[in-house]
């Protein structure tokens, strides 16, 4: 009997933990980060960045965007407390008629990213 209550308790605790963790798991891409480096494929000239910058800067929570043409990387700065998902980035890039690649985040606590960024 006691074992049954113990199992139920453990299951309930697991459920609570899982539910609590679910939003974080579903939105890990929007985790604590103030800056994102988004690889965009297909951009070949400053003129071609016009629509891309408009679409990326139009995402709610985005403060500013610059684009590194040689490496095809958009440097996206977010407003304090803002959260932007990877899918929002991908949708914006698709709307701009380009193809999204890797998305890397620079968190507030971690200043270093692979590639020296």
């Amino acid at each position: 009997m006691q074992g049954g209550w113990a199992r139920r308790g453990a299951a309930a605790a697991l459920l609570v933990v899982t539910l609590a963790a679910a939003p974080a798991l579903a939105d890990t891409s929007a985790a604590d980060s103030r800056e994102a480096f988004v690889t965009v494929m297909g951009v070949v000239s400053p003129y071609a960045t016009f629509g891309l910058l408009k679409h990326l800067s139009g995402i709610p929570g985005v403060a500013s965007v610059t684009f590194d043409l040689a490496h095809g990387i958009a440097d996206v700065h977010l407003r304090p407390g803002a959260s932007v998902t990877d899918q929002q980035f991908r949708d914006a890039i698709r709307s701009a008629s380009y193809t999204a690649g890797d998305i890397r985040r620079k968190s507030e606590t971690s200043e270093n990213l692979p590639g020296g960024r």
């Binding site: 297909g42 071609a48 016009f50 629509g51 891309l52 408009k54 679409h55 709307s95 701009a96 008629s97 380009y98």
Partner: peptide, 8 residues
Amino acid sequence: ASPISSGN
């Protein structure tokens, strides 16, 4: 066939 972004 150059890219034209939607809304551009």
